[in-house]
Simulated assay, not measured.
Amino acid sequence: MTVSPARSIQEGHAHPLVSVITPTYNATRFIRETIDSVKRQTYPYWELILVDDCSSDETVSLIQEELHDPRIRLIVLPKNSGAAVARNTGISAAGGKYLAFLDSDDLWLSEKLEKQVTYMQHHDVAFTFTRYRMIRENGTLTPFVVTIPQEIDYNGLLKNTIIGCLTVMLDRDKLGLVQMPNIRTRQDTALWLQILRAGHVAYGIQEELSQYRQVEGSISSNKWKAARNTWRLYRDIEKLSLVRASWCFLHYGWNAWRKRVDQRG
């Protein structure tokens, strides 16, 4: 494992540090744009920890060109291990009070961190997420914005996996140890469920602050695989009974169908 040289980032009480975790794997097409969306944040108290999962393209070289910014760090994993290991490696290296997540092809609007930190400080909450817009693979906007509830608890999330990973912010001081389950897919939803199962509530900020890129051939673009992985999450990770898992899965399917209809419409 190689890590860029250690850097000190000052963190004031009024301006807590946000640690942004970005796993990368063969991300040359989009990684510069993703990094730029972090660098454009109006809230400057962040560190971006990029964890490369053994890319075979120029991803690492492109990231290394950004290391002149002391807020940007790079970790290169010694072997390909999957998104959960990459994210957990970044979390373990993080020094911020807040954790935020941004995949290597997604984007943030410039006020994302500022508005989310302000909301969490004002309302004294541990877990927030926001609305986000779908963008096409070439970066053009679609008309589809994912709407979200004001708040969601464990039972609500089981039936509607509405929380976009790129929109989440977590307060580590309130939540304690945060680690994603080491599974190949749905590790983000599994973490949200773990947090909510402990009694926390996730609060939805009703603003569009992120952009989710629809990449052809990605895991998330395959709806059948997504459904299968959700079922495995219910049964293997959450250990739901067959009856309860089936009930939640029916709700999940209905909400997923509504989302696709809204997206097409």
Rank of each mutant, 00 (worst) to 15 (best):
D52G: 10
H15E: 14
G265F: 13
L166E: 09
L77P: 03
F249C: 02
I49D: 01
G217W: 01
L62E: 14
S19V: 10
A202S: 08
I205H: 09
Y132D: 15
Y154D: 00
L166G: 11
T2Q: 06
Y252R: 02
D262W: 08
T24P: 04
T22H: 01
L170G: 02
D36P: 03
H123I: 03
T42C: 04
A27M: 06
A94F: 00
S104C: 13
N182A: 13
R235W: 07
P16R: 04
C248I: 08
K174I: 06
R213L: 13
P5H: 12
D236Y: 13
A256H: 08
V76T: 14
E207P: 05
Q10L: 15
S61Y: 02
G204D: 09
E58N: 08
W254A: 09
L170V: 04
M1G: 14
Y252P: 00
W108Q: 05
L107C: 00
L233Q: 04
R197L: 06
A6Q: 14
L209E: 04
A126P: 01
T167D: 02
Y98K: 07
G96S: 10
R197I: 00
W247V: 04
D106G: 03
R133S: 12
R32V: 12
R131E: 15
D106V: 04
C248S: 15
I148G: 15
R260C: 03
D106T: 03
I152F: 01
A86S: 13
E208F: 01
H122T: 13
M120N: 12
T142Y: 06
P143L: 13
L175Q: 01
S246R: 10
P143Y: 10
V168N: 02
L158G: 00
G199D: 00
E11H: 12
Q263M: 14
D173P: 02
G164C: 13
T128C: 07
Q263Y: 15
L166I: 14
V3W: 09
N138Y: 06
S8R: 15
C54H: 11
W108H: 08
R71I: 03
E151K: 07
L250K: 09
I72T: 09
N182K: 11
E11D: 11
T42Y: 07
V243G: 04
T230I: 10
Y203S: 08
L196N: 03
Y252N: 01
Y43D: 11
K115N: 14
A190C: 03
E33T: 01
D57H: 09
Q187K: 06
R73G: 01
L170H: 00
T140N: 07
S56A: 06
S81A: 05
R258H: 14
T189F: 06
L50N: 06
Q194E: 13
R235T: 12
P16A: 02
V18P: 00
D36R: 05
E65W: 00
D105N: 05
W108K: 05
V117H: 06
N160K: 07
F144S: 11
L233S: 11
E11A: 14
N182R: 05
S81M: 11
V76S: 10
Y45D: 12
S4E: 05
Y119Q: 09
P5A: 14
Y98G: 03
T130A: 05
Y252W: 08
F129V: 07
R264M: 07
L67T: 05
H123A: 12
I35S: 09
R29G: 10
A83C: 08
A14V: 01
E208D: 15
E137F: 08
L113E: 08
F101D: 10
T2A: 02
H122K: 10
Y234R: 04
F249I: 03
N222D: 15
T142D: 00
Y45A: 12
